[in-house]
Simulated scan of single mutants.
Amino acid sequence: MIPWALIDTATVPGGGELRLKQRGTEFSIMLGTNELMNSRLSGSEEALARLSIDKIRDRQRPVILIGGLGMGFTLRAALAELPQEARVVVAELVPAVIRWAKTEMAEVFKGCLDDPRVMIVEADVGELIRRETAVFDAILLDVDNGPEALTRDENDRIYDAGGLGAAKSALRPGGVLSVWSSAPDARFTRKLQAAGFTVEEVPTRASTKGRGAKHMIWLGVKQVR
């Protein structure tokens, strides 16, 4: 078997160190002993995009915010579902992740960064959300390991009451806040409901073949009053 090779490392602002590894055509991004993502496992990230866009298919010129570039699985799946008039903003905190997408992992991204609908912003998605009001039709969060921060403590602020309130304000009426997590979390479901979202929980598998680890996706639709 081909051994893993360390390609690069990157410091997470306010957090730990990411390691990009490669084995043949397979890539892995690690934080310590935890594998955050693997280029062979894209099922739940793709589901995050499809399930979210299903909620807003009636919108003619949707504006989407994706928190976390990762390996581009959510972005590619979103572009496949969205109309040409859509606009997709991707907020990525770690500059090296953007660089890896354009260099070492360019084949994984398959040119999606060149799509004219896409704008990549080097920013903390939580800060970006807090600056906007009624701008987005959907906010898709694949940040850290889900509501329980793993890479940096500041990510907890995205998922606390204040962060969820900011996301609700940044959404247009009837917009959807979608959150990916490595595991279920009943407390987070209650937080979403308390913040004024109608919540749906969707268990998903890591692999596109319906196998692998079980992940969770929350779909929170902003209630219209």
Rank of each mutant, 00 (worst) to 15 (best):
S181C: 10
K110E: 15
A138H: 07
L69P: 06
R187H: 12
R172M: 11
I53Q: 06
G32N: 05
K209W: 10
K209D: 09
P3L: 06
A194M: 10
V89R: 03
K21Q: 14
G72M: 05
E35W: 00
A78Y: 01
G163Y: 03
A149T: 03
R99A: 14
M1P: 04
V108Y: 00
T189R: 15
L18P: 01
I53N: 05
V176K: 02
L82A: 12
S28D: 13
A161T: 14
M37C: 11
T25F: 01
R172G: 03
A149M: 02
L18F: 10
E122G: 08
A213C: 02
G72H: 09
E35P: 00
A78W: 02
A5Q: 15
R225G: 13
R57A: 14
L69S: 10
K55F: 03
Q223I: 13
E17R: 15
G43Q: 09
A134G: 13
V12T: 08
R59C: 02
M216F: 11
F188I: 01
E201I: 13
L31C: 13
D185K: 15
T151Y: 03
A49G: 12
D160K: 11
P203W: 05
G165Q: 12
V121W: 01
E104P: 00
G24R: 07
V94S: 02
Q22D: 05
P3G: 06
W100H: 06
V89M: 08
I56A: 07
K102W: 00
C112L: 00
T151A: 15
P184G: 04
K214D: 12
G70Q: 06
H215G: 13
S182C: 11
P3V: 04
R152S: 15
D185N: 15
M119Y: 01
Q223D: 11
T133Y: 01
D8C: 10
E17Y: 00
H215P: 11
P203Y: 01
D144V: 07
L140Q: 10
D185W: 14
L75N: 11
R23M: 11
V221A: 12
P184R: 09
I29Y: 02
G174C: 10
G162L: 07
L177M: 09
